[in-house]
Amino acid sequence: MKRRNFIRKSSSYGLAITLLGTYACKETKKKEMEEEGSAEMSGELAEPFFKLSLAQWSIHNMIREDGVDPYTFAELAKNWGFTGLEYVSQLYKEELEAADYSKEAMDAFVAKCNAESGKHGLENLIIMIDGQGDLATADAAQRKSAVENHYKWVDAAQAMGCHSIRVNLSGSTEPDEWTASSIDGLTQLATYAKDKNINVIVENHGGLSSNAEMLANVMVKVAMENCGTLPDFGNFCIRKEEDQCVEQYDIYKGVKELMPHAKAVSAKSHDFDADGNETVIDYVQMLQIVKDAGYTGHIGVEYEGSQLGEEAGIIATKELMINAAKKVI
């Protein structure tokens, strides 16, 4: 073969191979894009509309019974795939109460929490306050004392970069009395917290606070931007007898009524079926309510079950939230 003909034929073969390769590459890319689009349509690649935080109460048995240091909270949450932290004041009660909640003790608490959350790159979100007095008591003097007992926690939340403290409204079982006392207690505390850029948020947490319609009405009457709710998927028992709930508020109606005032959300869980669903709470329905309210912040996992250990229960709840979010419209 003459050199000229060889070069011409070689060039033709090379061009054919190049064109064939380009076509194959385009077809592969097209297929990948189609598969990616299909996955997005099915929700497989879509990120949840919320961020994941962990309520420290989920590890209260580890801390109280197994001796786990509460200051390892950030490390544990990081290892389990969370980005936000929701602290529980009573899990630090022993050391703080021993120091009579002195400024030095509170400052040390703040410093340790900040050091750990900073080291592990997590965001401090909420401190859940218990045992500091009844903000909804009918006794005005006791109510004022309870408000002032919460001041140190507002200051701690500010120093930790949290957005809120969670408080309880126990108080009277008489609706009008409870409502009036709740409005007054919250107004006093939210007024103090306002200057610190801290929200005062109320969880449906038993008693009349689990009557969502009444709690929402309190929020309307307080009418302060930094006072809101923390809807919990599972805390809607208004009255118990012998540790059994005898008066239960509709959990879906309750969350829907509290969401317009929500500054955080708590995903309560207890037990799971063979498919990984919560046995009592329909997470798809709950997350649909939350999304429909326009909420896109953190949702805190709060496992309280006995079927699984705390670590397994936390992970099961987290996986359920991610899977349920794919089914939300």
Rank of each mutant, 00 (worst) to 15 (best):
E213W: 14
P175L: 11
M219Y: 01
L320H: 08
G185I: 01
N197R: 02
Q248K: 08
L122N: 13
V220M: 09
M286P: 04
L15N: 09
L45I: 08
K291A: 14
K31C: 03
G118E: 10
E278M: 10
R166Y: 01
G313S: 01
D139M: 12
K119L: 11
H270N: 12
A212R: 09
K253H: 10
L96M: 04
K30I: 10
L320V: 08
G294L: 09
Y101A: 06
K9Q: 14
A74C: 15
F49V: 07
E213G: 08
I315Q: 06
G131R: 06
Y249R: 05
S164T: 01
T279P: 02
R4L: 11
S102Q: 09
E65I: 03
D66T: 01
N226R: 02
H270I: 13
G171N: 02
H298G: 03
T137M: 03
A212G: 14
E32N: 10
A146L: 05
K119A: 13
Q142R: 12
L186C: 00
V167G: 00
K253A: 11
E32V: 08
S266M: 14
M321G: 07
S170K: 15
E319A: 09
M1R: 15
V202E: 02
G228P: 03
D69S: 08
I315R: 12
L308R: 14
M224P: 00
T22R: 12
S53I: 06
L169E: 00
N5M: 07
S145C: 07
K144E: 11
H298K: 05
N235Q: 12
K30L: 09
Q307K: 14
G37K: 11
V328R: 12
A262P: 07
K119Q: 11
K268A: 10
K29F: 01
A108E: 13
D275E: 15
F272S: 04
N114H: 07
N217T: 12
S11C: 10
V220L: 10
L45D: 04
E123R: 13
A141P: 09
E97K: 15
G234H: 04
E310K: 03
K9G: 07
Y87W: 14
S58Q: 03
E36Y: 06
M259C: 09
V147W: 05
K51D: 09
Q288G: 15
